[in-house]
Nucleic acid binder design. Sequence first.
DNA 1: TCACAAACTTGACAGTGACTAGTTATAAAA
DNA 2: TTTTATAACTAGTCACTGTCAAGTTTGTGA
Lengths: 216, 216
Amino acid sequence: MTQIKTSLGNSARKKYHHGDLASELLRAAEAELSENGIESFSLRAVAKRAGVSHGAPAHHFTDVRGLLTALTAIGYERFVRAQNHRQQLAKSDPKSQLVASGLGYIDFAMQNPALFRLMFSSEKPDRSNERLAISARSAFDKLVTDAQNIHDADPYHDPIAMMDVMATWALVHGLADLMISGRMEQPMGFTQMAQLERDAAFTDIILRVIPDNADS
Amino acid sequence: MTQIKTSLGNSARKKYHHGDLASELLRAAEAELSENGIESFSLRAVAKRAGVSHGAPAHHFTDVRGLLTALTAIGYERFVRAQNHRQQLAKSDPKSQLVASGLGYIDFAMQNPALFRLMFSSEKPDRSNERLAISARSAFDKLVTDAQNIHDADPYHDPIAMMDVMATWALVHGLADLMISGRMEQPMGFTQMAQLERDAAFTDIILRVIPDNADS
DNA sequence: TCACAAACTTGACAGTGACTAGTTATAAAA
DNA sequence: TTTTATAACTAGTCACTGTCAAGTTTGTGA
């Protein structure tokens, strides 16, 4: 227990000043999150994982809320990237692009279920935090833009177009949420399906809320 | 602090044996849940609210998980009733009935947001618990039945029909989830709308995933 | 009335997040 | 190079959490 400070331990030099503890804590926090889920998330466990004392995180993130808020903001940024990634692989017409965005949405949820829960179903992140507000907003704006490319109308000025946006969002969000809670398993067996087959099924469902008059 | 045991206190006779503590605890738990949300739910606070010691709940529900599992089961039962209630007010054709069920789904979420979260986005309830499994199952079966009345096919034997079920479920669930997390507020201003107007908007959205060939 | 079990209380334990005071390293000023 | 200030981190404490073990009260059936 009583380790000599100057000892290098297991080859990892243990400096008093970590150098980049903030990033290290975020990494540890995400690892804890995906291993244990948000409901048994512990700040002390994160500190232990990062190899620092339980009081250390406070200096960088004030409190648990601060750490989770930062992690959530990063989540939204990666969330948008997951959608962009799908879009790069898809055809360039607006309809295909919107569907691809939806598939990216679901990809992200399936690959980061706990983080997804933190982003969409938790009150722990401080939504008034500037960075979080910006990244969450840009995720929503992306959705609006994708939808706007299908209709001629700007959803921010056309209530009907905004209804289309919300319909698409709700459908895709619902698919993602039901998926990660295991509720699609018994009826559809989605996790056992090959990805291509699953994508086809999701695409089929998503297309239902996209108006036919949209250019294919 | 040291109260005389035989004192009647504030007119409520305080018996050692409560008589129906289990129900009382469930009531208290739901009150705590809706006041504080699931993320700061405390068993001790529930016990205090029910006017009983912190150890008392264990005798009826084993642990927190047990209490929340029971509450979740009750939630699903009320959830189905909320849908039935809407259906009684609606026209009797299958399409109207399915839409009504969806509106009831959303009603329930809006009126019991924390409970809804517990039911659909938490791992605290023990889903292998028999009563919970049964009530959750019957909620799903209701959805299947409502969808079955629209198509001729039985979703349990027709994969296409099951896709319809999941599409409807995902859309309605997504609407409910986005609604209670406040994400429909800025784009649509739903909470400020009159109920009839909001119902009309939701109905419009829900109808998009219901095939046209369904008898009106 | 007597024993027994069910219902409930009480006290203890380890774990949690937050706070305070103290320690160590780094960087800027002399 | 030495001094000084401050940022980074540790360590101890507090109130609170859920769980457990042991004790007390009450109701019930023999």
